[in-house]
Computed example of a mutant assay.
Amino acid sequence: MTQLYAHAPVKTVSAGNGIEYAYREVGEGGVPLVLLMHFRGNLDYWDPALIDALAEGRRVIAFDNTGVGGSSGITPSTVAQMALDAIAFLDALDLAQADILGFSLGSFVAQEIALIRPALVRRLVLASAAPQGAPGMHGWAKWVIDSVGEPEVVPAKVLDVFYTQSPESRSAGEKAFGRMFSRAEFDAPTTWQTRQAQYDAVSTWGIPNFSLLERVTAIEAPVFIANGDSDPMILPRYSHLLAGLIPDAEIKIYPDAAHGFLFQHHEEFAGDVKRFLDRA
């Protein structure tokens, strides 16, 4: 299959909040599926194999939120402001309704969008997700943040967080990296300001607060929650907690997989997402 996402140009759109957003889109038809990226990631960090599979018969849009990659502005340090900025991007594209897929930090933002503007979100996919206020989520384990949070990103350390130590998982991670960085045109890299602001947002989101767990019970859109069984960044138990809080949420845990389960199991995950989105 042609890797459409690997050849998609970077486009820009000016939003009402004064931000110029960078984005890529592939596919056409159906309700648009909008993707929200993980910590320190830009447009290049989506696996083209996953995006192309999701884009069969559907418009898929990936974008850099405020201050990230090729988008202008300063990255905010709260998930709530990131959600408002994402809504501004969706408004700029004149999207009255969309399906939302949030990955890691993006899953936090996706939850906020569904709470701030419920009518905007038709269906919600939360990958490697946790609810706000969950005990034990106040920042990541030291070895995890040391692996993904240093000024210089070391691919081998990122692999340690995103994939397990099994030969199968490791090989899948190396192949995913190869697909991500084989394109001719790259997005602007994320800055240290983005890294600091995003980790501040992650840490604030994880301050233990049982009363905040109730917030997600107000999400009305159908929700599909997914994670890897060995994710060291957002432990699977937080995905189970989230699924228990959101009415009628579905959950699936993928085997021998860590934070990058959706890239490792891209064919299976894309199939699961498409079935969820297309369900009557």
Score class of each variant (00 low, 15 high):
Asp47Lys: 01
Lys157Gln: 15
Leu101Arg: 11
Glu174Ile: 10
Leu33Cys: 04
Ala53Gly: 09
Ser239Ile: 02
Ser203Leu: 03
Pro76Phe: 09
Asp200Val: 14
Gly173Gln: 04
Phe89Cys: 07
Ile251Tyr: 08
Val161Phe: 09
Trp143Pro: 02
Arg123Pro: 07
Phe276Asp: 04
Ala176Trp: 07
Gly29Tyr: 06
Glu214Asn: 13
Ala221Glu: 07
Ala134Gln: 04
Leu54Met: 10
Glu28Trp: 07
Gly178Glu: 15
Leu93Ile: 00
Ser166Phe: 12
Ser166Gln: 04
Glu220Gly: 15
Lys252Asp: 01
Lys175His: 04
Gln196Arg: 14
Leu54Asn: 01
Gln132Arg: 15
Val154Met: 08
Val125Ser: 05
Glu25Tyr: 13
Lys252Glu: 12
Leu95Trp: 09
Glu56Arg: 15
Tyr163Gly: 03
Thr78Arg: 13
Ile225Trp: 05
Leu105Cys: 08
Pro189Val: 01
Asn42Trp: 04
Asp99Gln: 12
Thr12Ser: 07
Gln193Leu: 15
Phe269Asn: 08
Ala172Met: 12
Ala249Phe: 02
Ala127Pro: 09
Ala188Gly: 00
Leu93Thr: 00
Ala15Val: 06
Ala258Ser: 10
Ile61Glu: 07
Tyr199Ala: 02
Ala15Arg: 09
Pro189Gly: 10
Phe162Lys: 02
Glu150Trp: 08
Ala197Pro: 07
Phe108Thr: 05
Arg24Cys: 07
Asp231Ala: 01
Ala83Trp: 03
Ala249His: 06
Ser147Lys: 00
Asp231Val: 05
Asp94Pro: 00
Tyr5Gln: 08
Asp99Glu: 08
Ala15Tyr: 10
Leu101Gly: 08
Arg279Gln: 09
Pro167Glu: 03
Ala176Asp: 09
Ser182Trp: 05
Arg279Asn: 06
Asp64Ala: 02
Asp200Ala: 15
Pro48Val: 11
Tyr45Lys: 05
Ile61Val: 12
Arg40Gln: 11
Ala141Leu: 15
Leu245Tyr: 06
Ala119Trp: 14
